[in-house]
Design a protein around this nucleic acid. Structure first.
Lengths: 260, 260
DNA sequence: ACGTATTTGTTCGTATGTATC
DNA sequence: GGATACATACGAACAAATACG
């Protein structure tokens, strides 16, 4: 590929410092905002294709005639909403749409602390229930196999009395993938990571709970969405009580922040 | 009001350079990103109230222990997506939730095809179904009344042949509040804003669809969670087909970019 | 395997314009 | 008008991570 995105801003020039005050009530376009809109338009109208690398920061701000700080503020906004991704020493690349669309849902789940843990767990139950239902309707043969493989892996862990955190993660991940909805899946992913940092460290694989996973797998394999949902729901409820019991039993490992 | 939002980050300090797990593949959190998440959570979960003035940039970066530039990149991102508004010589203020994501989403949908959008809609259906179920179980008398009031307001709009976008928003908002789960509620809010462009644009208040809202209300008032869920689900499905029909009828705005 | 060049990440200093009191 | 508080903008510098020869 030859110098991608090199003719997009030929005449992109000043435009910051338009009409400060004449007759209109200002509404001055701030430089970052105008640059931001410009960058967004490059992305959405396909001028910068998905996966493509955009010019380096220093090149861009030179061609736009602005300082690097100003460009970075706009560029960073694009990155934070998931339109582009920057890698040090490599460059900045345009993200697929799903990343962008999934972002807002993640914001709602991110930044929640211990106080909201109960609510996060509740959210997770609903999410997983939904995902299991979708997976039952949409999973391909390969995806069903992956879920089954995760269950097998869990079984091995359980019989070996090992902690099965990783294989359980793989199990939920496989179901999420099979649901074919990036928005929900990425939210799930974030929730899983978040919960892992809270509690996952010590959960015993209790064989009783493991039966539930097998039931979920069978329901998905049989394309029985209702059963998949119901079993996942029960799984979530049981997880909640397991966690509650675990926490009550005098752990309280992290610490509650007493903010308001 | 005395110094609003001044006790939110007493010990909010390090967090950028966290060690998630010893064996985990790093997943290094960039400083701007973590600050951004923190700020978003302050805004989304209401720690900073709407209209409230947030601390000055210099104060904030001092309390967060980061440089001004880094804070500005995160803060500017919030402003560009309509969560806060900065006025020179005055300060930075939290915007009403309805403005969240208002601007950038108009762009997004220009470059997003229907299949991608389908995922957001789907996510919203699941969220609202969950919320309706919770609302049926948890709504207080006052909250039920608020939902009923929103339905009445919708009825007036429908009979007056007015667009009922606002009252429909209020309806969904009232249900979300009654569910008593802030995480799910803010998730729905962000998703709703993400779709706002479609909903608002042209959706006719079709009286057939309105019946569904009444049914949802009755189910919640009767504390019948199953019916509430089912009706909300149907409501979502109908919304999807309405949107699909609307989109099929010759929109297909820009073009499809087949960028592998 | 090593070193250099490239690219983003982060910080500081400073000047300017604007709104409030 | 003056003083103060605040956001806006620019530039320079160094750090860190990655790519490439």
């Amino acid at each position: 590929m030859t110098d991608p995105g090199d003719r997009c801003y030929d005449e992109a020039v000043p435009l910051h410092k338009v009409r400060p005050r004449s007759a209109a009530p200002a509404e001055k376009q701030k430089i970052t905002a105008s640059v931001f809109e410009q960058l967004v338009s490059f992305v959405v109208n396909g001028h910068w294709a998905v996966g493509q690398r955009i010019p380096a920061e220093r090149d861009l701000c030179a061609q736009l005639g602005i300082a690097r700080t100003s460009l970075r503020e706009a560029l960073k906004a694009l990155e934070l909403m998931g339109m582009v991704e920057s890698r040090v020493g490599d460059g900045t690349f345009v993200c697929p749409r799903s990343k962008f669309l999934a972002r807002p849902l993640q914001w709602a789940f991110a930044g929640t602390n211990q106080e909201h843990m109960q609510e996060v767990i509740e959210a997770r139950i609903f999410l997983e229930t939904s995902l299991a239902g979708l997976a039952a309707e949409r999973a391909t043969r390969e995806e069903v196999q992956r879920i089954g493989a995760a269950v097998d892996s869990m079984r091995e862990d359980v019989t070996a009395a090992r902690p099965c955190g990783d294989s359980e993660m793989a199990f939920h991940q496989a179901i999420a993938d099979a649901a074919h909805n990036n928005v929900l899946t990425s939210a799930m992913h974030l929730l899983l990571n978040q919960m892992r940092t809270w509690i996952y460290r010590e959960m015993r694989p209790a064989s009783g709970r493991f039966k539930r996973h097998e039931a979920i797998y069978r329901a998905i394999a049989a394309k029985d969405a209702d059963t998949a949902r119901m079993q996942t729901w029960q799984h979530g409820v049981e997880t909640v009580s397991a966690i509650a019991e675990f926490l009550d039993r005098g752990s309280d490992p992290p610490r509650k922040r007493g903010t308001a």
